[in-house]
Design a protein around this nucleic acid. Sequence first.
DNA 1: CTACTGAGTGAGTGTACACTTACTTTCGTC
DNA 2: GACGAAAGTAAGTGTACACTCACTCAGTAG
Lengths: 202, 202
Amino acid sequence: MTRLPAAQRREQLLDTASKLFAEKGYSGSTTAELARAAGVTEPIIYRHFSSKKDLFIALLERTGKQTIQRWEEHLASAPDPAARLGRLIGANPMVIGEGRGVYRVVVQAMTEIDDEDILLALQNHIASLHKFLEGEVVRAQEAGAVGKSFSPEITAWLLMHLGLGYGMLAALRIHGHAVDKGGVHVRDVVERLMLGTRDRQY
Amino acid sequence: MTRLPAAQRREQLLDTASKLFAEKGYSGSTTAELARAAGVTEPIIYRHFSSKKDLFIALLERTGKQTIQRWEEHLASAPDPAARLGRLIGANPMVIGEGRGVYRVVVQAMTEIDDEDILLALQNHIASLHKFLEGEVVRAQEAGAVGKSFSPEITAWLLMHLGLGYGMLAALRIHGHAVDKGGVHVRDVVERLMLGTRDRQY
DNA sequence: CTACTGAGTGAGTGTACACTTACTTTCGTC
DNA sequence: GACGAAAGTAAGTGTACACTCACTCAGTAG
């Protein structure tokens, strides 16, 4: 209804799609619903994106950038590389805060891998997150907080696997998939395995 | 064409669906395709399953049972609990052998979690795999191959997270998501973290 | 030989939904 | 104050696809 300049409308459509897809899934959402939720009519969507899929890919790319930005903010105030890594382990974008909803979109995307374009967008997404993690491991190793038995590269992949698996089970609402009866959390386990048992401050 | 007794036709439909879904995904496959691939007409599908979704859930349940059975066969010849665990770490059902295709179905299912019935089936699936892993960790701890710092429960969840994340990235065909430039595989890392560095025989 | 049961089929039906066409309204600028 | 560009709309269209109806035929039991 309210006229918006193109750039803003585009962003608003992505915001709306993000919420909608998080709730009902990509294939579970219709372009009609999206239009209604955004307060416009369907052709507007097609003015900004050439197809539903195109919009989806745009959303995926934006999400990747946002995640890294959030990580950076989250780590900025940590006193040293070890603490940064510790925080990172507790800051799975698939689970915490706003990222949570958005990341259902990424998981959604993972099953649309028949589609070349979506696959490519996803591969880029994963690669950029891995690169970020690898950088953190390098810092932590240089600071002596993490041993050098394993390369930063493989260590970062391990963290990716863990985070992804954890995030999936969280999305599936698997009861107690991360704590045991004694209240120990997988996060604690990972931290002890990575950083040893010395005292740390966050 | 060839007439089959109901039970056999049902199994054959599940076999066919498993291949089809692995290739084109659940929502990417049509009931018409399935019927054609199975060499029957559509109404036959509906004689055995009340809906496409119902068939999907049946497939999911069968897959869970098959996975555990395969694990058991795979571990049976290992000499001791440590070796069993070692084998398990290298035997991700999402990646190796026949399980591979089938598990695309499970990943597919993970995005249909709006649907109550599918969610429930998935939760059961995960729970049974976790239970199996937990049992193996218990054995390994009792045999002294794995330390007791962490409960078998949480250790098994950690292995689930790792396996799931690994399997997802494998499905996404992420290049080099499991080895570093030095040829070290995440599997090796996990083994060393879990079982230490002592010599083992498989 | 007949009659019943259950496996099978050809030809729809209804609907959901991505995407379009042809048209109207708003607004900055010259 | 007019005109062109950009933002918007109402009302389709085409098609894909889950699911069904009404019927046929094969094999076995009495």
